[in-house]
Amino acid sequence: MNPLRNAVNRTVLALTGAALLAGGGWLALTSDGLAGRLPGWWPTPDAGTVLLDRGGLADLRTHGWWTPVVVAGTACALLLCLVWLLAQFRGGGRRLPLAGPSLTLRSRALADAVARRAEATEGVDRAHVHLPAGKRRSRARVRVLLEPGAAPGPVLERLTRGPLDEARASLAPHRTSTRVRMGVRSTRERRAR
């Protein structure tokens, strides 16, 4: 995922969460049971009131600006949420830049090729590769299931010098960081096949 998009997503989620937490905390702390223990400066509603009663709402509706502002605000919020949702599925983030000025490669195609090469490596039973696209830097997440009895050190060295180096070379001059997770297939799982 694009780092800017990732930062925007986290910021919006954090602000939404903070607003909901503050509103929920205010409503919870101003209940009748806790209101007596709060400091004097804490804003508390009058007993038996609601956040927006029918009289207050009717009073707001008498103003000519109220209905258009509510409709426009709701429409803008809906449009913003839809644009944000569609931006998550935009195809531009799924292409990896190559050495040429306008050359790109689908990250899924490269990930499948690296996974097939990794599975052909001695000591590897299965491999899954995920390559999120980035403009200047790519991250490869590799999950490898080792065959029983395979030593992780030599397998990691063979993977690094083989499929992972080839992936790094195909994305040059852009940097690629790699995280490899290894697991061992149990003999019980092997018998079940």
Results as ranks from 00 to 15, higher is better:
Leu20Gly: 13
Leu20Pro: 07
Leu21Trp: 04
Trp26Gln: 08
Trp26Cys: 02
Leu29Trp: 10
Thr30Lys: 08
Ser31Arg: 14
Gly33Asn: 05
Leu34Val: 04
Ala35Asn: 07
Ala35Ser: 15
Gly36His: 13
Gly36Trp: 06
Arg37Met: 08
Arg37Lys: 07
Pro39His: 07
Gly40Ala: 11
Trp41Arg: 02
Pro43Asn: 09
Thr44Met: 00
Ala47Leu: 03
Gly48Pro: 03
Gly48Ala: 05
Thr49His: 04
Thr49Asp: 08
Leu51Trp: 11
Leu51His: 00
Leu52Asp: 05
Gly55Glu: 12
Asp59Leu: 11
Asp59Ile: 02
Thr62Ser: 13
His63Tyr: 10
Trp65Asn: 03
Val70Tyr: 00
Val70Glu: 03
Ala72Val: 12
Cys76Ala: 15
Cys76Val: 15
Ala77His: 01
Ala77Thr: 13
Leu79Phe: 09
Leu79Ile: 08
Leu79Gln: 01
Leu79Met: 08
Leu80Thr: 11
Gln88Cys: 07
Arg90Thr: 10
Arg90Cys: 07
Gly91Asp: 10
Gly92Arg: 14
Leu96Cys: 03
Leu98Ser: 01
Gly100Ile: 02
Pro101Asn: 07
Ser102Gln: 13
Leu103Lys: 11
Thr104Cys: 01
Leu105Trp: 09
Ala109Gln: 14
Leu110Gly: 06
Leu110Arg: 08
Leu110Ala: 09
Ala113Asp: 14
Ala115Lys: 09
Ala115Gly: 07
Ala120Lys: 12
Ala120Arg: 14
